[in-house]
């Protein structure tokens, strides 16, 4: 588990996510690298259970609550989309 971040600039959010996805999903999918725009679903990096794991991680790591209507590919299906989504949530929460 990564130490919680007090201040989370975009670069840090992305690196936290990259490390988590690399450590937890990439080897299971038989892949070595992850580009910012790779689709996590289409590349077989995460399945529906993986989405649940990812949700649990980002809610705990960034202390945010992800609503059911936000659990969509536009928010979660790539490193870039995830980073933007979390940045928006953090900004909205006043971090």
């Amino acid at each position: 588990m990564t130490d919680k971040l007090e201040i989370v600039p975009e670069r840090d959010v992305k690196e936290v996510l990259r490390r988590y996805i690399t450590e937890n999903f990439l080897s299971r999918a038989g892949l070595e690298g992850l580009d910012d725009t790779d689709s996590l679903m289409e590349k077989g990096i995460i399945d529906s259970t993986g989405v649940l794991e990812l949700l649990g991680f980002i809610e705990e790591e960034f202390t945010i609550k992800v609503g059911d209507v936000e659990v969509i590919p536009d928010n979660l299906d790539s490193l870039q989309k995830l980073t933007s989504f979390i940045q928006r949530k953090l900004a909205h929460a006043g971090h």
Binding site: M41, S48, V51, L52, L55, G56, D68, I72, D74
Partner: peptide
């Protein structure tokens, strides 16, 4: 109609029409 991931929602009903629902995490599912 609307793109979304395959995330399960658990719904319960007390038999008197009072329903509640919650998203399931991996362990619960």
């Amino acid at each position: 109609e609307r793109d979304s991931f395959n995330i399960y929602t658990l719904m319960i009903d007390d038999g008197q029409g009072n329903a509640k629902s919650a998203r399931l995490n991996k362990e619960n599912l």
